[in-house]
Each structure stands twice: as structure tokens, then as C-alpha cells.
């Protein structure tokens, strides 16, 4: 029988499939559709210290084989996530969740992570230093090794939970950024966040998205994500959560061969709310087709 189990920093997952932050809310829209306990885990909506409404609409544009979003980290704030969202989630999800945390200063990241550290439902903290849709925050940390180092150290000082730093692909070389996170004590690396992109409306002759630019995701970005996961796997000895354009079981296997221990599925959830259960259902057959008995065995197999 196909063995789908993987382990991220001591946290054993039944399978490597994790819906990506921002495409799965806090879980319950999907819990209405299927038993989300079949997932390895899921990464909840990027959460900040203060509540945020996000950017004006339009926030969404379509691209060839993908989409652009400029939601701008809309979320109810860490305190309401702890007092309302997590208790509600507990009723429909009995596994550990990945807490995706964003911020605008080193202190804010640390404060947010200190508060979520007390929550036993959280298995991993995914520190988002790479959101392209907010000004003066997030991605400006994620594209600078010193910024990544400072955020990682500050977060590690306030939590005992494994800390995964989610990197931005909007850099010339991903390796120094992954290395900075590793040196600062990160337990793992998540990559890639969205690529900064743009569409222009031919009728108005202006950008489609109100914020002008946004994060490009979807199947179109899979090769970029694979390349960066491959590079980071070679450069740092930390577990990787790979993501970017994954829409099928074959993509999952490809991502694991590149070096990912677990795989996040993002935009695919938005066009097919049953994307993750479908990937899980087809994984054993695709594994068998390629002579794979255990997913653990293939991590980094392409190297």
C-alpha cells in the first residue's frame, strides 16, 4: 500500500497535502464541502496583529494558466483568530494547523507569534515575509537577508513551535535568503509566495487591479517554484514546504522530487474547491505508476 506519511520538524502528517494560506480561509468554507481531516494540515489565512480590510477592489485578475490577486492580507487580527476562528475550526479540524503570520515590523511579527504560541491547535508557524500586496511590510523583509534574519530571530525567541519562513520569489537569487533564515534559526522554509505581476484592461487602458500589481499564482508558476525549491534544497539542510502552481498528484510528486517534504496547494482550491481531495485520491495510483511506495523516499530525489 502506498505510504503517504511525511514528517515536518517532528510533526507527522498523514500526507503531504496542505492547502496554502489565503486560498482556504480558516477552513470552514471547505469543511462544508468535505471532511478536511483528510488533509495533512492546512495553512490558515495570513494573520496580522491588527485586523485588516485589505486593498480596494478589483483585487483579482486572470492570466494565462493563472491569476493575480491583491487582497492585501485581509484578516480579523490575531486576537479574533485566537478567540473566534480557532475554536470554530476545532469543531471540524482535529489535526494541527499551520499558522501563517504576517507583519509590518519585527516587533509585530514577534508579538503575533508570541500570542499564537499558546495555541495547542497550531503545529507550525509559517512566517510570511513575502506578501507582495501590502506597502511597507512583508515583502520588504523577505527580499533582504538582514530583514529575514531579524524577523526569524525575533520569532524564534518567543515560540517553541517550529518556525517556517515563507520566502518571496521576487528576488534575483533565492539562496542567500534561505540561508539567512537557516542561520537565524528557522526550522524550515516555505516557498514560493506569489510572483509580482500585472494585467492591463484594454478597454480602460489601466491596470485591472486597483492596487495596480498583485501576486501571480496558478499552474503557470510551477516551473519557477520547482526551480527555487530545488535550489534551496541544495543550499540549506532544512525541511521545505514546496508550493507554487501545484494542481495535480503529478505536480506534488515533482515538487517532492525537487526537495519538498510537504506540498501546499493554493490557487487550485479557488477554481476547484475539491482540488485537494482529488489530488489525494489520485496520489496512490500515480505513485504506483512511477514505482513509488513511500513518499518519504522521494524527497529531493531529483538531486
Amino acid at each position: 500500500m502506498a505510504d503517504l506519511k511525511v514528517t515536518l520538524s517532528g510533526l507527522e502528517l498523514d500526507n503531504p497535502i496542505i492547502p496554502a494560506s489565503g486560498t482556504f480561509g480558516y477552513g470552514y468554507e471547505f469543511a462544508e464541502l468535505y471532511d478536511i481531516n483528510i488533509l495533512g494540515s492546512f495553512s490558515f489565512k495570513g494573520t496580522t496583529l491588527e485586523p485588516r480590510f485589505g486593498n480596494p477592489t478589483p483585487r483579482i485578475a486572470e492570466t494565462p494558466s493563472g491569476m493575480i490577486n491583491a487582497v492585501g492580507m485581509q484578516n480579523p487580527g490575531i486576537d479574533r483568530v485566537i478567540s473566534e476562528e480557532l475554536p470554530r475550526l476545532k469543531k471540524c479540524f482535529h489535526k494541527k494547523v499551520v499558522a501563517n503570520i504576517g507583519g509590518f515590523s519585527v516587533e509585530e511579527y514577534a508579538e503575533c507569534c508570541a500570542r499564537i504560541d499558546r495555541e495547542e491547535q497550531v503545529g507550525i508557524i509559517e512566517v510570511n515575509v513575502s506578501c507582495p500586496n501590502v506597502h511597507n511590510g512583508c515583502m520588504s523583509f523577505g527580499t533582504d537577508p538582514l530583514g529575514i534574519s531579524a524577523v526569524t530571530k525575533a520569532v524564534k525567541a518567543v515560540t517553541k513551535k517550529p518556525v517556517y519562513v515563507k520566502l518571496s520569489p521576487n528576488v534575483t537569487d533565492i539562496v542567500p535568503l534561505a540561508a539567512a533564515a537557516a542561520e537565524a534559526g528557522a526550522d524550515g522554509i516555505s516557498l514560493i509566495n506569489t510572483l509580482l505581476g500585472m494585467r492591463i484592461d484594454l478597454r480602460t487602458k489601466k491596470p485591472v487591479i486597483a492596487n495596480r500589481m498583485g501576486g501571480f499564482s496558478g499552474s503557470a508558476i510551477l516551473p519557477v517554484a520547482l526551480r527555487m525549491v530545488y535550489q534551496v534544497y541544495e543550499a540549506v539542510k532544512l525541511p521545505i514546504i514546496g508550493m507554487g502552481g501545484v494542481t495535480s498528484a503529478r505536480d506534488v510528486i515533482e515538487m517532492m522530487l525537487a526537495g519538498a517534504t510537504a506540498v501546499e496547494v493554493g490557487a487550485a482550491n479557488l477554481i476547484d474547491p475539491w482540488a485537494c481531495p482529488k489530488i489525494l485520491a489520485e496520489l496512490p495510483a500515480v505513485m504506483e505508476q512511477y514505482g513509488i511506495t513511500s513518499l518519504r523516499d522521494i524527497i529531493g530525489g531529483a538531486h
Binding site: 486560498t23 468554507e29 471547505f30 489565512k45 480590510f53 477592489t57 483579482i60 487582497v71 485591472v208 479557488l270
Partner: peptide, 27 residues
């Protein structure tokens, strides 16, 4: 009407601000 990502409340792509706080046009 609003440009939507998912259409079922997951992505926050179509949020508007109302007198009762933010709401998703799709959900």
C-alpha cells in the same frame, strides 16, 4: 457585481466594506 477569484468565500477577492464591516460579494 465584483471581480471574483473563487466565488464561494475562500479567497477574499471580492470583499466590500459595508456598514456592518467587511462582506464577501460572492458568499
Amino acid at each position: 457585481e465584483e471581480r471574483m477569484g473563487c466565488g464561494f468565500g475562500a479567497c477574499m477577492g471580492c470583499s466590500i466594506m459595508t456598514k456592518n464591516g467587511s462582506r464577501r460579494v460572492c458568499k
